[in-house]
């Protein structure tokens, strides 16, 4: 029941898509986001950041690497500009992520401004989940799935941040460190199953050159690595579709 075995454009109803999004979101993704955000909550509490600021950051920055950069640098007493620049650049991935997800959801919203609101919900989890399931969901209902899934894990993130903030006093140090390690660990597995050739190449090149470029230019390393490694993967490993229907524009 409710499995996405319908053909695209089939008789999937909006309600069924909402249910599917909620059910997919409530499982492992929520557990992972909750525990990762516990890591952030405990980091924030440790660094003297207020409870309200920590919760607001999880809801409105909604990008863990940027939040971690913010909490760590703030605790270290860095100046405002340094903190904000580091937090912002650590979350620069949202630009190409939005560019490679929103074209797949076209036609689902009536208002032109809606995507600017919806994009606030975007996170790595939602991006990966949508990339996987969109082929099975009719075009006009994809935005419904996106919203249902993303909202679910946003709530999980709030719960996790709150728990972590107050649990930090009771958690042994290795567990707190484990909670912070959980985020890169889960992200790595999220992409370890990728099979599409150019994307596998992009992942490997990015993983290899990421830390090297970071050592040379820490602030700009993600943008730089993404651009260079991503372009290299595209130019050397992308297989051009040969059919006429896939004629490329731009």
């Amino acid at each position: 029941m409710g499995q996405p075995n319908h053909p695209p454009g089939g008789r999937m109803t909006a309600r069924a898509v909402v249910r599917l999004g909620l059910r997919r979101g409530v499982g492992l993704p929520s557990v992972i986001v909750m525990t990762s955000m516990m890591g952030f909550g405990s980091l924030a509490a440790d660094g003297g950041i207020s409870f309200l600021t920590a919760l607001s950051a999880s809801a409105l920055v909604w990008g863990l690497p940027g939040q971690v950069a913010m909490a760590e640098l703030w605790a270290a007493g860095a100046n405002l500009l340094t903190v904000v620049l580091a937090a912002s650049l650590a979350n620069a991935r949202f630009m190409p992520m939005a560019m490679s997800l929103f074209p797949l959801m076209r036609g689902g919203t009536r208002h032109r401004g809606a995507p600017y609101l919806l994009v606030q919900l975007l996170s790595v989890n939602t991006w990966a989940a949508c990339q996987e399931i969109f082929p099975a969901i009719p075009l006009h209902l994809r935005v419904v799935y996106y919203t249902a899934f993303a909202s679910t894990i946003l709530v999980a993130g709030q719960i996790g941040t709150g728990l972590g903030f107050f649990a930090v006093a009771f958690l042994p140090k290795p567990v707190t460190l484990g909670l912070i390690f959980l985020n890169p660990c889960y992200f790595a597995l999220l992409f370890a199953g990728t099979r599409v050739r150019p994307y596998v190449a992009a992942l490997l090149l990015g993983a290899f050159f990421g830390p090297i470029i970071y050592a040379l230019a820490p602030e700009w390393s993600l943008l730089l690595t993404g651009f260079v490694a991503g372009s290299a993967a595209f130019f050397f490993f992308d297989v051009r579709p040969t059919s006429v229907s896939n004629a490329e524009s731009k």
């Binding site: 190449a201 992942l203 990015g206 651009f227 490694a229 991503g230 992308d238």
Partner: peptide, 9 residues
């Protein structure tokens, strides 16, 4: 490709 590379980095 750029998204995947950035995430991996």
């Amino acid at each position: 490709c750029v998204s995947y590379a950035m995430l991996a980095a």
